[in-house]
Simulated scan of single mutants.
Amino acid sequence: MLTLEAVSTAAIVEALRGIEDPEIGSDIVELGLIYQIEIAAAGRVRVVMTTTTRNCPASAFIVEAVKAKIEQMESVSEASVDLVHDPAWSPEMIGKGFGRSRP
Protein backbone atom coordinates (compact mmCIF):
# COMPACT_ATOMS: atom_id res chain seq x y z
CA MET A 1 0.00 0.00 0.00
CA LEU A 2 1.27 3.43 -0.95
CA THR A 3 1.70 5.90 1.89
CA LEU A 4 2.26 9.64 1.91
CA GLU A 5 5.79 9.18 3.23
CA ALA A 6 8.18 8.83 0.30
CA VAL A 7 10.75 6.10 0.19
CA SER A 8 14.34 7.30 0.58
CA THR A 9 17.45 6.45 -1.38
CA ALA A 10 19.07 5.31 1.86
CA ALA A 11 16.21 2.89 2.55
CA ILE A 12 16.49 1.45 -0.96
CA VAL A 13 20.26 1.04 -0.65
CA GLU A 14 19.79 -0.73 2.68
CA ALA A 15 17.21 -3.09 1.16
CA LEU A 16 19.51 -3.88 -1.75
CA ARG A 17 22.27 -4.90 0.66
CA GLY A 18 20.18 -8.04 1.17
CA ILE A 19 20.79 -9.19 -2.41
CA GLU A 20 23.95 -11.16 -3.07
CA ASP A 21 25.67 -11.85 -6.33
CA PRO A 22 25.27 -15.65 -6.33
CA GLU A 23 28.63 -16.25 -7.96
CA ILE A 24 30.70 -13.98 -5.72
CA GLY A 25 28.75 -14.17 -2.46
CA SER A 26 28.90 -10.46 -1.63
CA ASP A 27 26.00 -8.04 -1.66
CA ILE A 28 25.42 -5.98 -4.79
CA VAL A 29 25.89 -2.65 -2.99
CA GLU A 30 29.24 -3.70 -1.52
CA LEU A 31 30.33 -4.90 -4.97
CA GLY A 32 29.58 -1.45 -6.42
CA LEU A 33 26.96 -2.75 -8.87
CA ILE A 34 24.38 -0.01 -8.13
CA TYR A 35 25.19 3.11 -10.15
CA GLN A 36 22.09 5.26 -9.70
CA ILE A 37 18.73 5.36 -7.91
CA GLU A 38 16.00 7.73 -9.03
CA ILE A 39 12.81 8.26 -7.05
CA ALA A 40 9.93 9.88 -8.94
CA ALA A 41 6.44 10.96 -8.02
CA ALA A 42 3.84 8.38 -7.06
CA GLY A 43 6.44 5.99 -5.66
CA ARG A 44 8.16 5.07 -8.91
CA VAL A 45 11.79 3.99 -8.52
CA ARG A 46 14.39 3.48 -11.23
CA VAL A 47 17.70 1.74 -10.58
CA VAL A 48 20.67 1.83 -12.94
CA MET A 49 23.08 -0.99 -12.25
CA THR A 50 25.63 -3.29 -13.79
CA THR A 51 26.89 -6.82 -13.31
CA THR A 52 30.43 -8.04 -12.82
CA THR A 53 30.64 -9.15 -16.46
CA ARG A 54 28.69 -8.31 -19.59
CA ASN A 55 27.64 -11.96 -20.00
CA CYS A 56 27.00 -12.66 -16.33
CA PRO A 57 24.83 -15.78 -16.10
CA ALA A 58 23.12 -14.36 -13.00
CA SER A 59 22.07 -11.06 -14.66
CA ALA A 60 18.37 -11.90 -15.01
CA PHE A 61 18.23 -13.28 -11.45
CA ILE A 62 19.89 -10.18 -9.97
CA VAL A 63 17.78 -7.70 -11.95
CA GLU A 64 14.56 -9.47 -10.97
CA ALA A 65 15.67 -9.63 -7.32
CA VAL A 66 16.37 -5.87 -7.29
CA LYS A 67 12.99 -5.08 -8.84
CA ALA A 68 11.13 -7.40 -6.46
CA LYS A 69 12.97 -6.13 -3.36
CA ILE A 70 12.16 -2.50 -4.16
CA GLU A 71 8.53 -3.21 -5.06
CA GLN A 72 8.09 -4.85 -1.63
CA MET A 73 8.85 -1.52 0.04
CA GLU A 74 5.78 0.17 1.47
CA SER A 75 5.96 3.49 -0.38
CA VAL A 76 6.93 2.08 -3.79
CA SER A 77 4.31 1.65 -6.50
CA GLU A 78 6.61 0.49 -9.29
CA ALA A 79 10.29 -0.27 -9.86
CA SER A 80 12.34 -0.53 -13.01
CA VAL A 81 15.92 -1.67 -13.41
CA ASP A 82 18.20 -0.62 -16.24
CA LEU A 83 21.18 -2.91 -16.71
CA VAL A 84 24.15 -1.08 -18.22
CA HIS A 85 27.76 -1.98 -18.93
CA ASP A 86 29.18 1.47 -19.42
CA PRO A 87 31.17 2.00 -17.40
CA ALA A 88 32.21 -1.59 -17.08
CA TRP A 89 32.47 -2.99 -13.57
CA SER A 90 35.95 -3.58 -12.18
CA PRO A 91 37.23 -5.04 -8.89
CA GLU A 92 38.31 -1.54 -7.84
CA MET A 93 34.61 -0.76 -7.30
CA ILE A 94 34.32 -3.27 -4.45
CA GLY A 95 33.81 -1.63 -1.08
CA LYS A 96 33.08 1.85 -2.42
CA GLY A 97 29.33 1.47 -1.87
CA PHE A 98 26.49 3.19 -3.65
CA GLY A 99 27.18 6.48 -5.34
CA ARG A 100 30.94 6.19 -5.22
CA SER A 101 31.46 3.17 -7.46
CA ARG A 102 30.83 4.82 -10.80
CA PRO A 103 34.07 6.26 -12.23
Rank of each mutant, 00 (worst) to 15 (best):
A65Y: 01
A41S: 15
V76G: 03
K67Y: 02
H85I: 10
T50F: 12
N55I: 13
I62L: 15
G97V: 00
A15V: 05
D82A: 08
V29C: 10
T9L: 06
S59D: 09
D21P: 00
Q36H: 15
E64Y: 05
S59C: 12
A40K: 15
E20S: 14
R17D: 09
V63E: 09
Q36Y: 13
D86A: 09
M73Q: 08
E14C: 06
S59I: 07
Y35R: 12
K69G: 00
D82L: 07
S26K: 14
I70W: 02
E23V: 08
A40R: 15
E64M: 07
P87Q: 04
Q72N: 09
G32Q: 09
S80I: 09
A60S: 11
A79M: 04
V13H: 05
E30C: 12
E74I: 11
S77Q: 14
K69E: 03
T53L: 10
K67Q: 10
I28E: 10
M73W: 03
R46C: 12
A11W: 04
P57M: 04
P57E: 02
L4W: 09
P87M: 04
G18R: 11
V13C: 07
S59H: 08
F61T: 13
Y35V: 13
A11S: 10
L83Y: 00
I70S: 06
G18T: 10
L31D: 05
S75K: 07
P103F: 01
L4K: 09
A68C: 08
V45E: 12
R54P: 14
L4G: 10
L31G: 02
I28S: 08
A15Y: 02
L16M: 04
A15Q: 08
D82I: 05
A41C: 11
L4Q: 10
G43K: 11
A40H: 15
R54I: 15
I94F: 01
T51H: 09
A58M: 12
I39R: 14
E78Q: 14
F98Q: 01
S59L: 10
S75E: 09
P103M: 01
T9H: 07
K67A: 08
E23G: 13
